[in-house]
Simulated assay, not measured.
Amino acid sequence: MEALYLLVPLSIVVVFAAIWIFFAASDNGQFDDLVGPGMRILQDDDRPAAASEADDAKKGDGEKA
């Protein structure tokens, strides 16, 4: 029974912390674009890595993105 004196207030604090984290993430725009990252993974880049490095060298960048 004494455990309830600890667990009930602790669970209330955890619930309020979870709600605060959710609303903080929502205010910071964490959930603005839920579809974009899922669509971005479907875009296929067929160029091999060596060809993309050669193209970068031809452009004169010298730096890799």
Rank of each mutant, 00 (worst) to 15 (best):
G38C: 03
L10K: 07
L42K: 02
L34E: 05
F22V: 06
D46V: 12
I21L: 14
S11Y: 15
V14N: 04
A54I: 12
A25D: 07
A3W: 12
Q30H: 11
G29K: 01
F31C: 03
I41A: 12
F31T: 00
V14S: 08
D27V: 01
Q43E: 15
D27R: 02
A17F: 09
P9D: 08
V8E: 08
L6I: 09
L6H: 05
E63C: 00
K58V: 01
G62T: 06
D55K: 07
F22H: 05
A3N: 11
R47Q: 06
K58Y: 00
P9R: 06
F31R: 01
D46E: 13
K64G: 13
D61K: 14
I19V: 06
V8H: 03
G36I: 01
I19N: 00
D56Y: 11
D27I: 01
D32V: 03
P9T: 07
M39Y: 04
K59C: 03
F23A: 01
P48E: 09
E2I: 15
D44Y: 11
E2K: 15
A18R: 06
I19P: 00
V8P: 01
V13M: 12
E53P: 00
D33R: 02
V13S: 11
V14D: 05
P9C: 07
G36K: 04
N28F: 02
F16H: 09
I19F: 01
K59I: 09
E53C: 06
E63M: 03
I41P: 01
L7C: 15
P48W: 02
I19S: 00
W20E: 01
G60Q: 05
D27G: 02
V8D: 06
A51V: 15
R47D: 08
A50F: 02
P9W: 09
V15I: 07
S26D: 10
A57T: 11
G60A: 04
D44R: 09
K58N: 00
P48A: 08
V8W: 08
G38P: 00
V15C: 01
A18P: 02
K59A: 12
V13W: 12
F22N: 05
S26K: 05
E2L: 15
P9E: 10
D55E: 13
D44V: 13
F22R: 05
A17N: 04
S26R: 06
K64Y: 14
D27L: 02
G62S: 05
S26C: 03
